[in-house]
């Protein structure tokens, strides 16, 4: 048993990447945001990038709390404005790697405009959008990604609004890298984050995550484990699938994979090029 004692003294491999003085985190049992953080930490570990040069920015909401748990320079900003704040950081110091981790409500609803325009400008950011189909921290209201006809506290007769298709939105706006995984595809998710991280330009990784407390409870879908099992049975990996086909219907198949991978000049490159031209003239 001696070996076990020495192992028990070992640190969790992610302890250096996370603010362990704040763990346990606030997320409910069965929530998938922890998995997304775990995948992100795994990606950082694989990247072996200088963590002093990595900045994590979050907005508000359940996923907005991610920044507070990751041991890099991290910012917890206002609702929806994480991308705008990150834009400032990236332009202020182009050597930094800026990662925005936030939820679907934060990035696609209130921050939708910033999402679209950062993608259009091709600001060098990696956006990890944790999509749990609901506004969880505010009490389970209908989100821009809630499928029809899911129940939420503000859609007591079932949701009738067309949900947003995040990869399609990102592609249309000009993102250079778009992937989607569920919280169960941990290795692929981590690999995707690594790829997105290394891609110059605006990259988006959507993480479908269970909300055990609101989304699955009000829709009687069981707990987090049941949601995970649903992803296990119903997610189909189709790389390069047209983003038109990526709508998520209620309790139907979820297509995951890497959908967009292209090259466009990033904003800071273009800006510097123009400034140089201006000086030459």
């Amino acid at each position: 048993m001696e070996t076990i004692n020495t192992i028990q003294e070992q640190k969790h491999p992610m302890d250096d990447l996370l603010r362990m003085d704040r763990i346990p985190h606030i997320w409910c049992p069965g929530c998938g945001i922890g998995n997304a953080v775990s995948a992100f930490a795994e990606a950082l570990r694989k990247l072996e990038y200088d963590l002093d040069k990595v900045v994590v920015v979050s907005g508000i909401g359940c996923t907005g709390r991610v920044a507070g748990y990751i041991k890099t320079d991290s910012f917890h900003t206002t609702h929806g404005r994480a991308i705008a704040f990150a834009t400032g950081i990236k332009l202020g110091n182009p050597d930094l790697k800026v990662i925005v981790i936030s939820g679907d409500g934060d990035l696609v609803s209130i921050g939708g405009n910033h999402f679209v325009h950062a993608a259009r400008r091709n600001i060098d950011l990696t956006v990890i959008c944790v999509n749990n189909f609901i506004y969880a921290m505010t009490g389970g209201q209908v989100a821009p990604t809630t499928p029809i006809p899911a129940y939420t506290t503000t859609s007591p007769f079932g949701n009738f609004e067309a949900p947003a298709n995040v990869p399609q939105l990102a592609e249309a706006a000009g993102a250079v890298y778009v992937a989607r995984w569920t919280a169960l595809h941990m290795r692929r998710l981590a690999d995707s984050i690594v790829e997105a991280f290394n891609r110059p330009g605006f990259s988006v990784v959507e993480v479908i995550s269970p909300c055990a407390m609101y989304y699955s409870r009000i829709n009687k879908l069981g707990d987090g484990l049941d949601m995970m099992q649903f992803y296990y049975n119903n997610s189909i990996i189709r790389h390069g699938e047209s983003t038109d086909n990526l709508n998520i219907d209620y309790q139907k198949e979820i297509i995951v994979g890497k959908f967009v991978d292209r090259e466009r000049p990033a904003f800071s490159e273009s800006l510097n090029e123009w400034l140089r031209k201006d000086q030459v003239e």
């Binding site: 705008a84 400032g88 950081i89 990236k90 202020g92 110091n93 910033h114 325009h117 904003f267």
Partner: peptide, 30 residues
């Protein structure tokens, strides 16, 4: 170009000030 300053035209004023706050934390005055 001559001063080494940088600028960005954001999509709205909400994000302009957000970007300014972000840039300040990189050590610039904004």
């Amino acid at each position: 170009a001559e001063t080494g300053a940088t600028f960005v035209q954001m999509e709205d004023e909400i994000s302009s000030l957000a970007a300014v706050l972000g840039a300040v934390w990189t050590g610039r005055k904004a």
